[in-house]
Computed example of a mutant assay.
Amino acid sequence: ERGEPRGARKKTVNKEEAGLGDCINCAMCVQVCPVGIDIRNGLQYQCIGCAACIDACDEIMDKMGYPRGLIRYTTESALEHEYAEKDIKKRLLRPRVAGYGAVLAVVIAAFLVGLSTRKMVEVDILKDRGVMVRENAKGWLENAYSLRIINNSEKEQLITASVKGFDEIALTGLPEGGIKVAPRETVTLPVQVSTIPEYADKGSHPIEFIFQYRESGASDGKPVVLEEDATFIGE
């Protein structure tokens, strides 16, 4: 509305007498556009909102002595004169906007809470269904498990494990010094839990795996402890 009809002219030309709008058809807005659109044809889906055309056009308006804002951020309703552009900020104070803001605030809060409370290391304990119970070389009853260790952090984690549930119980299959898990990696490791036959009669018995982890190479600070329940199948 303000820019049309376009037309090249000298700075000294009276645009009203020449019947021209503020756009001098310099095409600077098109030349600086990173996606190559002509914003004078209206908002297009390719626009990335970088405002390069606004800056270029404002410079031209300054040189011509015209008001800035030939290209600007505004609303369709303001362009159609449903209200003045100075009232755009007042239009933000509406129940709908407040509702959207409240929903967005809840989503952001939930995201931050989830981010702060999520576990840096997760462990899944999978019972080996192929072999329910067996006797090992020591004569103890033994169950086999697979540990799936997930490192959600951006740093390598050193994880140690132990097990409890009987007065005499042993966990084997882990490397000495603990398990090193690289950032954003998942490691699956077979382990065995064994106990004296007298402690594990027929049926299932609750046991508990205890995992401790800290960043690999870090010796200070209290390690984080994870406890995971499992079952031991007796003879």
Score class of each variant (00 low, 15 high):
L226S: 06
C33F: 02
T117L: 12
N14E: 06
G42M: 02
N151C: 02
I39C: 09
P95A: 05
I88N: 01
D229K: 14
Y66M: 08
E235W: 11
G99W: 09
L93W: 14
V35K: 06
A170L: 10
G114Y: 08
V191E: 01
G221D: 09
Q192P: 03
L171F: 02
F166K: 02
G42P: 08
M64K: 09
S146T: 13
E168I: 11
L43E: 13
V133C: 06
D87T: 10
S153R: 07
L93C: 09
E227T: 15
D22Q: 10
D220P: 05
Q31M: 12
T231G: 10
V35Q: 06
I210V: 15
I125Q: 04
E235D: 12
D22K: 04
A78T: 04
A18W: 09
A56F: 02
I149Y: 00
D124N: 11
Q31N: 13
K90I: 04
S116G: 14
K10V: 07
D167K: 05
V106D: 05
Y66V: 00
T117Y: 09
L79Y: 10
I125F: 10
V163D: 01
D201P: 07
R129L: 14
K63V: 08
T117G: 03
Y66E: 06
G114I: 01
F209M: 02
K90R: 14
V107A: 14
I210L: 13
L93A: 11
I196A: 09
E82I: 14
I60Y: 02
V187M: 03
E122C: 02
